[in-house]
Amino acid sequence: MSPENKQQNMKPLTAANKLGIYLPAAPDEFQTGSVSRAELDALRSDPPAWLVELQTDGPFPKDVIARKLGVSIAGLARAGVTDALTTEQIEALLADMPEWLTKERRTQEEVRAEAERIKAKDEARRAATNRPQKLR
Rank of each mutant, 00 (worst) to 15 (best):
M1W: 11
G33L: 04
T129S: 12
N17L: 05
A127G: 08
L40Y: 05
Q8C: 06
Q133A: 08
S36Q: 02
R78K: 10
D96H: 08
T102P: 01
E88P: 00
V35M: 06
A15W: 01
R117Y: 13
N130V: 06
Q8T: 13
A66G: 00
E110C: 12
R105C: 10
S45I: 07
P24L: 02
E88T: 12
E116G: 09
E53S: 14
R117H: 10
Q7P: 12
W100K: 00
A124Y: 11
R131F: 01
P47L: 11
L93G: 09
D122I: 07
P61W: 00
P61M: 05
P59Y: 04
E109L: 15
K11P: 06
K18T: 05
A15T: 07
A84I: 06
D28M: 07
E99G: 04
R44W: 06
E114K: 15
A25G: 09
A49S: 14
L93S: 08
Q8Y: 10
A115Y: 15
P47K: 00
R126C: 03
A16T: 04
E53F: 03
M1H: 13
R78Y: 00
G33E: 11
R105T: 08
F30H: 00
M10E: 00
L93E: 07
I118D: 10
A115F: 12
P61E: 04
V111G: 06
A115I: 14
P61N: 03
L13E: 14
L43I: 04
E91K: 09
I90E: 05
E88H: 07
A38M: 09
E39H: 07
A92F: 12
T87W: 02
F60L: 11
T56F: 06
E53C: 11
R106T: 14
A15R: 07
L19C: 12
T129F: 01
R125F: 06
D46I: 08
P98I: 05
R106Q: 13
A120D: 13
W50N: 02
E109G: 15
L23F: 08
P48T: 07
Y22C: 06
M1A: 14
I90F: 09
K11R: 13
L69Q: 01
R106E: 14
P27E: 06
G70H: 07
Y22F: 14
T14H: 09
